[in-house]
Design a protein around this nucleic acid. Structure first.
Length: 347
DNA sequence: GACACGTGGGG
DNA sequence: TCCCCAAGTGT
């Protein structure tokens, strides 16, 4: 059997498997249905799915498409409303780029570029997302490589060099088995395979349509691939958030446009960051009381232990936005501050 | 290439 | 409990 035959075989088997096993997802068109995917929904889902699980995205996708059914609607939205709707999903730069991208596309008449290169120019659309949209929404041949594909390819071809150094080698191997036809289905098939069969831990090789051609499985090392260079330990930082209450309202601030949780509504704090712990300094002079307990929160590159101080004011002169406490859940704060609010309110 | 950038779930 | 991981991008 020639190498090219094996490649065609892998491709055909994967597509056949996908026809019978594709996950049903809110943003997906079932294979063979003849439906045409909406580029707006494909784009929105792909951005939401960056470094995020399908389960976490589902509710947000439903909410966004209900409030903003088209790219024009999203482009016309207030920044604060979009950021609030995104609150809890994480990686907030994605939301800021989402707004910028929607406005750019709306400025082109609401038409997304239909090529990988054109899509790549859009804010928040990188190598992966441009390839994914080109393939899924426009049927273009594109080499779509996410963490699922990296894992499947590393195992199929026994690529043992550690990530991220081996990205180019993996991409080239993925290129070699990417078909000209059904590019979108192929990309989604690879990702579904990685998500459900060729999983990071405990791969289900007995169920895999490619198991007999998987060289890592043959070598008995499938579960150990891909190798990854070890991550650095996350430092522990401490910080303080301040709950300033007056007449049933709490004082919220808008965070800086740069850095952690940029642009998000939040409780005032003492300036903690990934680099340093906070200094405990309150934003104003008052009779502060320590709230019992602590909020533990893990960010990508550090861990935070957040204490909360509270005080009661008689007026509302302080700088910020006074938010009704009984509607604090609608404030659209990142999870860290939502946890702090729960600690204060005992909910 | 390295690092900043969130969060929730699974083993 | 803790560690790893997930449909990455921008700087």
């Amino acid at each position: 059997m020639k190498a090219s035959d094996k490649i065609d075989d892998a491709c055909a088997r994967l597509l056949a498997w996908y026809d019978g096993h594709a996950r049903t997802l809110p943003w997906r068109v079932p294979p063979g249905s003849g439906e045409v995917p909406d580029p707006y929904r494909v784009w929105l889902s792909e951005v939401m799915l960056q470094q995020t699980t399908v389960a976490a995205v589902k509710d947000y996708f439903a909410k966004f498409t209900a409030i903003w059914p088209t790219v024009h609607d999203l482009a016309a939205a207030d920044d604060a409303d979009v950021l609030s709707a995104w609150a809890g999903l994480g990686y907030y730069a994605r939301a800021r780029n989402l707004i910028a991208c929607a406005r750019e596309v709306a400025g082109r008449g609401g038409v997304f570029p239909d090529s990988e290169e054109g899509l790549r120019e859009l804010p928040g659309v990188g190598a992966y997302t441009s390839a994914a949209i080109a393939a899924i929404a426009f049927g273009r041949r594109a080499v779509v490589v996410d963490a699922n594909v990296e894992r499947v390819i590393a195992r199929l071809f026994t690529i043992t060099d550690p990530l991220p150094g081996s990205k180019e080698v993996i991409r080239a191997a993925a290129d070699s088995i990417t078909p000209d036809e059904r590019a979108g289905d192929f990309a989604q098939a690879m990702m579904d395979l990685g998500a459900t069969i060729c999983t990071s831990r405990d791969p289900k090789c007995l169920l895999c349509p490619l198991s007999d051609m998987c060289t890592a499985r043959k070598a008995g090392i499938a579960a150990q691939l891909p190798h990854k260079t070890p991550k650095k330990a996350r430092p522990l930082r401490t910080g303080t958030a301040f709950w300033i209450e007056s007449d049933g309202h709490v004082l919220l601030v808008k965070r800086d446009g740069k850095g952690m949780l940029a642009g998000m509504r939040a409780l005032p704090d003492d300036g903690w960051s990934a680099k340093t712990s906070g200094d405990g300094t309150p934003p104003l002079f008052a009779d502060w009381t320590e709230v019992e307990g602590m909020v533990g929160h893990g960010f990508t590159h550090f861990l935070l232990e957040l204490s909360v101080q509270r005080c009661e004011l008689t007026g509302r002169e302080a700088e910020g936005e006074w938010w009704p406490i009984d509607r604090i859940g609608e404030a659209g704060m990142p999870t860290l501050f939502a946890k702090a609010a729960k600690l204060v309110l005992g909910t």
